[in-house]
Design a protein around this nucleic acid. Structure first.
Lengths: 216, 216
DNA sequence: ACGTAGCGAATCGTTGAACAATCTGTCTAG
DNA sequence: CTAGACAGATTGTTCAACGATTCGCTACGT
């Protein structure tokens, strides 16, 4: 499945392994081991490494190899600093109520509702990421989109080290829906403020779960 | 010079060729031709391609090759949209007057003055880029830094197609110095507003030169 | 004349093996 | 116990080759 490029499939597989915690933060990822396990050439693995390094899911140290990044609380703060700059700004800049362009957001919210009903928290998590990426895409800025994709990828890295993501994801299902309601009504300023508080809460919750993890 | 990685030296060379206009926008860059001309392996060239694609200096189309991006006026607008979000925001967020951290900015301004006196406009241009990157680095955000690096790289792409960059660079030497004066005095709010107008003018000037180019 | 199908050349994607350069850890010598 | 040499492992880079895909060209049919 997912044809097109061997390097791409390898990078997808590695991405899964990382976000599912099989490759713990700080772990070294050897070229030959991955090449053997996935039955591809070393060169292809190297190309996949570059793809993932591009999204921040791996770090490349010259002559030393690639490693799963050790995410610190400073990184979490940095990611959220950018999110707080970008996301509310996008909502605020949405002058006209382009209602039909909110369709995608609506479907993502529905998806989150469904997954939440089934207590499938990882699906809720990915739906949440899709929501925020779709939100940013409303700005119509390609460069904002790639920045946001990077940030979300790094966030997946953070969630990989947290055991029970339920209390992190569950509240956001409701808040995403409320934000969408405000935007549908054309109340973009109010939505931006709401999203700002939302993101602050989210950062706080993640940092709390994170520092609790550090003490252990 | 700049040992350590063959791929890095190749990417630096390619970067020069692109920004100096030897590789025009839209041109296809073949793997084998570059490999032969620089005396390196195809694999190394591919690695260099990925590095440059990461900064937006090349675009990679599967099974088709890599190309020098065709920058449109929409791209210029997009780059400046992000700059207007990031740079004034950084200045505004500089709460305490960390005067000693402005030292680097000061030296860059001096460099620009010197280059301007010698009418070396490409040196003025790189000094200008250094100024804005150093400005953003004051925020202490790694992710903001890499975003800014990307944006500046793409901007080099734009300048490559403009013949006489003098009237684009020259006014900014003074404005950078004035902005620095405001920041040195702790007037960050005023500086942010100044920078906002500054960026708007810059975008306008580039777009003007750009559309004039398009008509020809 | 025009559009289309098919053929062939060129280029890319990937493989596999090989060698050089570098890092890491161990073991010895002082 | 520290410093330095040595060996093993891993990465960086090269080379040659083969299938896959794209592109331009020719030839054909309408």
């Amino acid at each position: 499945m997912s044809e097109g490029s061997a390097a791409r499939t390898v990078s997808n597989q590695l991405s899964e392994w990382i976000t599912e915690g099989q490759l713990p933060p700080g772990a070294k990822v050897s070229e030959t081991s991955v090449a053997q396990r996935l039955g591809v050439s070393r060169n292809t693995v190297r190309e996949a490494f570059r793809l993932l390094a591009h999204d921040g899911l791996l770090v490349h140290e010259f002559n030393r190899g690639v490693f799963v990044p050790l995410v610190t609380s400073a990184d979490v703060r940095d990611v959220y600093r950018l999110r707080r700059i970008i996301e509310p700004g996008v909502v605020r800049s949405l002058g006209r109520p382009d209602l039909h362009r909110l369709a995608r957001l609506r479907s993502v919210v529905a998806e989150a509702d469904e997954a939440s009903a089934e207590r499938d928290w990882v699906r809720v998590g990915t739906a949440n990421m899709h929501f925020h990426r779709s939100l940013v895409s409303l700005a119509g800025s390609p460069r904002l989109d790639v920045t946001m994709r990077r940030l979300m990828a790094e966030l997946r890295l953070v969630f990989a080290v947290i055991d029970d993501p339920r209390f992190l994801y569950e509240p956001f299902v409701r808040r995403n829906r409320e934000l969408l309601t405000m935007m549908s009504a054309g109340r973009f300023g109010e939505g931006a403020d709401y999203l700002e508080a939302y993101l602050a809460d989210s950062e706080g919750a993640i940092l709390a779960a994170f520092e609790e993890k550090e003490s252990a």
